[in-house]
Amino acid sequence: MNPAIGITGVLESSVYVDDLDAAEGFYGGVLGLERRVRVDGRHAFFRCGRGMVLTFIPEASRLPARAGSLPVPIHGATGPGHICFAMRKEAMPRLRARLSGAGVAIEADFRWPNGARSIYVRDPAGNSVEFAEPGIWDLEQIE
């Protein structure tokens, strides 16, 4: 948090996908996030706690805004991105079981030097999806 300029946290995170149905199956189905908005061929947005996970088709997000629509600047990325979800320690075993039950391969499951745990998987578009105990960012132990 940077109180000097008013930053209080991360409001949204974006990942770029090639198939909105597959993204919705993963983020909405497997992870259970509530889909809030979907525009076929362009994006699907999911509620995650007090923030949002935005999934975009990159080619569509690189097109200029249509006349009369909100003036959101073009954006997009190529290649796999990364998103990390904060998890309570006691929820990690249930998460691992849910991922395995849905046929999602666990890419890594380990503890950081400070003892916090992370589980990594890939979403259907190949993005790296991490589930971590917030303690991974115990900055006093990382420095």
Rank of each mutant, 00 (worst) to 15 (best):
E12P: 01
R66C: 05
M92N: 05
V37C: 03
G49L: 09
V39H: 13
L95T: 05
A44H: 07
C84E: 07
G41V: 14
C84Q: 10
V53M: 15
F26Q: 02
Y16G: 01
G25N: 12
L70P: 10
A44V: 14
R38F: 06
V15P: 02
G28S: 11
A44D: 00
F56W: 15
P73H: 01
A44P: 03
L11C: 00
F56P: 01
G32D: 02
H82Q: 11
V15Y: 03
P71W: 04
A91G: 04
A67W: 01
L95P: 00
G68T: 07
F45D: 14
V72H: 11
G51E: 08
V53T: 12
R35L: 08
G51L: 09
G41R: 06
R66N: 10
V37N: 10
R50V: 13
A97R: 10
S14I: 05
M52I: 14
R47D: 13
F26E: 01
C48D: 13
I57L: 15
D19E: 12
V17E: 06
A67F: 00
K89N: 02
G32I: 01
E59Q: 14
F26H: 05
K89F: 01
P73W: 00
R38H: 06
G9K: 05
S14E: 09
F46Q: 07
R94T: 11
D18H: 15
V15C: 06
